[in-house]
């Protein structure tokens, strides 16, 4: 008995139609810039009409960015972290201090971030991001 020749050919037409539609839909919904946001609530760094007297026992955390260093102050004890060469922030040293603060005050998460006028926006964001990523998400940016 002669063998029958079987022609197996997949019909690609609906497959291509599906892909074409998928490409058009995905092109319309594609996001090319992944933009995120670091939020600050400036009400913690500005005076209000209903100001309450400051608690003398409360420790305030301040981080000040200067052109050559970052000063971290918890209460009355300041620490200084000089920038690395090229004006790069020494994140490792800064993280060590933040972790030390966290060990002393585990229930606190607010910090006030101040800068000198000559500091760049990139340095501000870098410091802000480091604070948020190391247990201090409530960052108030001072405008003074």
């Amino acid at each position: 008995m002669a063998k029958k020749k079987v022609n197996i050919e997949l019909n690609m037409t609906p497959f291509i139609g599906l892909f074409a539609l998928l490409v058009v839909m995905l092109l319309l919904t594609a996001v090319w810039n992944h933009i995120l946001a670091l939020s600050t609530n400036t009400s913690s760094t500005t005076a209000s009409d209903e100001a309450t007297p400051p608690d003398p026992n409360r420790v305030d955390f301040h981080v000040t960015i200067l052109t050559d260093k970052i000063e971290l102050k918890a209460g009355k004890s300041p620490s200084s972290v000089p920038h690395l060469s090229g004006g790069i922030i020494d994140k490792n040293r800064m993280i060590q201090i933040l972790e030390y603060w966290k060990s002393l005050y585990p229930d606190r998460s607010d910090v006030i971030l101040s800068t000198s006028d000559a500091v760049t926006y990139n340095q501000l964001i870098e410091t802000f991001d480091t604070l948020v990523g190391n247990g201090w998400p409530d960052v108030g940016v001072s405008t003074q």
């Binding site: 992944h34 995120l36 946001a37 670091l38 939020s39 600050t40 609530n41 400036t42 500005t46 964001i125």
Partner: peptide, 14 residues
Amino acid sequence: ISNGFTGINFAVRE
């Protein structure tokens, strides 16, 4: 802030 907008979001790239 002087016009009542205390919530400011700084746009950054991921």
